[in-house]
Amino acid sequence: MTASPHDALIRGLAADLQPVRRLPPPPLRALGWLGAVAAIAVALAVFADMHAVWGRMAAAPDMWLAVLGSTATAVLAGIAAFELSLPDARRAWAWLPLPGAVLWVGASGFGCLRAWVLPETHVAVLDESRDCILFIVALSVPLSALLLMMLRRACPLYPGLTAAIGGLAVAAAAATLLNLFHPYDAAATDLVVHIVAVALVVLANRMLGGRVFAASHFATPM
């Protein structure tokens, strides 16, 4: 066999070889993360006034649609992020959360229109909107940390895109859970505040996640 300039590297990698546990399929891994989100939801529901939550939902069916949209976005973006974390993933997975996001934004936008039609609805003022941002961002921190740790176990070759879609899953999950403590009806200001919060979380994940994946790129897999 002729000497290859990569002999030393190949011998080094072979010497470094440790048995690894094969990663489960991406939807199953996404289910693990969604399970953690569900556990947090149950824990938060203990502190929430569930009667008031059901009352608000029953009074405004478009809020159901918005919640359904944000939940679908969290689930689909979660699956897409785990798919994208594989080194041979197709970039097109990034489009998977689109239907959920369209429903989410569409239903929230419809809620804004209704606020104009029904003037007695309680619209969030600036202070309350700030609480929304704080809630979404604060809840996003542990959810992002968990998701990035889980995604890091694979080897994303699109680190920025994977982290951004993961950020969308996190922001959508946090926005869904916000409904437990959100006694306001949808309004244009509220919608803008939510969009800003989601954009912040996606951007932070995009920047931080890209670095986390790049730093771990050639680390020994867990």
């Binding site: 590297l9 690894v20 546990r21 594989l86 694979a154």
Partner: peptide, 10 residues
């Protein structure tokens, strides 16, 4: 080669 090593569990 390094990517294969890093991604072998996938």
């Amino acid at each position: 080669l390094l990517t294969i090593h890093r991604a072998r569990q996938t």
